[in-house]
Design a protein around this nucleic acid. Structure first.
Lengths: 198, 198
DNA sequence: GACATCTGGTAAACACTGTCAAGTAGTGAG
DNA sequence: CTCACTACTTGACAGTGTTTACCAGATGTC
């Protein structure tokens, strides 16, 4: 007398299993087992294992985009910093999900026109808007906002990945702020905007 | 009358298979098959599949460290830029190997004392030396060289990862230089040192 | 030369995996 | 009552990593 086994419940189970033991350890049969069901039953709601993983990743994008709400109401520069910190915090708190989200190519969605609803594009577009605003407000040196946003994303994603690879490198938590500080300074921002300058 | 199946030849075969079809598609039995041998035979030279993948990754680190030779004789700042470009070029040219090298945690070696021979630490130490030299020469604002090197690595690794995820984002090849430009500027370098300023 | 030993490999098997084809309870409509 | 449909199960296929037991052939010793 369980719930009727929707795609949603499958993805949710897979998500929790990914977060617990990593995407590499996820088995379709394991998900089915954990739902009290045999494996082929999943195929009515899910095309393949890859499809399921994509769905899990997409739910991750949605969560990440949601975490950007915290920058609402802030000035453009503060919003950029806040978003970057949320991005980093997301990576640290949900490492396995984060790894899955950016494993292989699924983030190619970012500029893919077909998937405009994707949380990945939502998140990126939000950050892009802040960059545009910052430039218009003269808080950043003029330039192509798209390029600047990509540079920012690269830097933040990089520091997150590096800290994921070698935990303990960011023991004091300074590395993120160091990266933000450096990049924003390189973009012509007045550095005092970034809190916690060393 | 084949060669006597050393660990070296196994790793080399695995490496070429990884580069051809990705680490995810690598099967121990496939490697054995491609060597004209049955799978258990490999276990005399390799502990497990993970062990084999680690060995492949390590050979990647060695290649990457080797590519840093091209910065020999350059000034500290130019060397940093050259190394960064080599890093990025490596990621673009050998994407599958690069992904494997930084998949999961094997890069924790970077600061692991036990693995001082690792190519990863060699590569990082070389870059670190350039940062130290640049600071001493007054080409970079003073600061903790380790932190600056980590910031640099984060940024370069990030732009490589991003370009790997969303190819076409770097269609004109400008993004790397943009990142280098921004980060070095943020570190207090005189930007003219970085070629191709936009 | 004959015998024991050691090496590098094979065969078979275990416990898994993703996926597909066919079959089967249960349910609602006509 | 029967038909059709949904939601699931059984069973199977081909493949995986890994272990155990075995075997041929080279090697070294008497």
């Amino acid at each position: 007398m369980n719930e009727p086994l929707s795609r949603h419940v499958i993805v949710a189970t897979a998500l929790s299993m990914v977060e617990a033991h990593g995407a590499g350890a996820l088995s379709l049969r394991g998900v089915a087992r954990s739902l009290g069901v045999t494996a082929p039953a999943l195929y009515d709601h899910v095309d393949s294992k890859s499809d399921l993983l994509r769905a899990v990743a997409e739910s991750g994008y949605a969560d990440l985009a949601g975490s950007f709400e915290s920058s609402r109401g802030l000035g453009p520069l503060d919003a950029m910093v806040e978003n970057a910190r949320q991005y980093f915090a997301f990576a640290m708190a949900r490492r396995e999900l984060f790894s899955l989200m950016f494993r292989y190519r699924p983030a190619a969605i970012v500029l893919d026109v077909d998937n405009e609803l994707s949380g990945a594009t939502q998140a990126f577009d939000a950050s892009l808007a802040h960059v545009v605003a910052a430039i218009e407000a003269g808080l950043l040196a003029p330039g192509d906002p798209l390029e600047l946003a990509l540079v920012m994303w690269s830097a933040v994603h990089g520091v997150a990945t590096v800290c994921l690879l070698a935990p303990g490198l960011n023991a004091d938590g300074r590395l993120v702020d160091q990266v933000l500080h450096t990049v924003l300074r390189g973009m012509g921002a007045s550095v005092t905007a970034v809190g916690g300058a060393p």
